[in-house]
Computed example of a mutant assay.
Amino acid sequence: MGYRRGYYRKDGTYVQGHFANNRSKFSNKNNGCLLLILILIAFTSIISCSDSSESNCPTKNCDDFKSRAEAQSAFENNKDCYKNLDADGDGIACENLK
């Protein structure tokens, strides 16, 4: 709210000054906070979507396979999901198995 000064209309009559609510519901004072909240919501939704793509991978380690050949076959079929089977990064999965 603010005080509105008196003024003259075009027809020459005077309008006395008075208090007037000249701000809308969404005034410019709160736009910074609103923008920050919207950015935060967008950022968290992007993060939650990117994490959900990895959840489709099975969580298996070398103890879940009977032989190195079986682990190597699973690793070669999907290297993104089974990257934990190759600890040293040389392309050979579960080197401790026989």
Rank of each mutant, 00 (worst) to 15 (best):
K10D: 14
G12L: 05
G12V: 02
G12E: 01
Y14W: 05
Q16L: 15
H18M: 13
H18E: 13
F19H: 08
N22H: 08
R23K: 13
S24P: 08
K25T: 08
F26C: 13
S27P: 04
K29F: 14
N30L: 15
N30P: 10
N31W: 14
N31A: 13
N31L: 15
G32T: 10
C33L: 15
C33A: 14
L34S: 07
L35F: 07
L36N: 06
I41T: 11
I41R: 07
A42I: 09
A42D: 02
F43W: 11
F43D: 08
T44K: 10
S45I: 07
I46M: 12
I47N: 15
I47Q: 15
S48N: 06
S50A: 12
S52N: 10
S52E: 10
S53G: 10
S55K: 14
C57N: 07
C57P: 02
K60I: 00
N61C: 07
C62E: 00
D63S: 12
D64N: 09
F65R: 01
K66M: 04
S67Y: 01
S67H: 01
S67C: 01
R68M: 10
A69I: 02
A69M: 04
A69E: 08
E70T: 11
E70R: 06
A71F: 02
Q72E: 06
Q72C: 04
S73Q: 12
S73V: 06
A74C: 05
F75R: 04
N78Y: 03
D80R: 11
C81T: 02
C81R: 00
N84K: 13
L85D: 01
D88E: 04
D90Y: 01
A93F: 00
A93P: 01
A93K: 02
C94A: 07
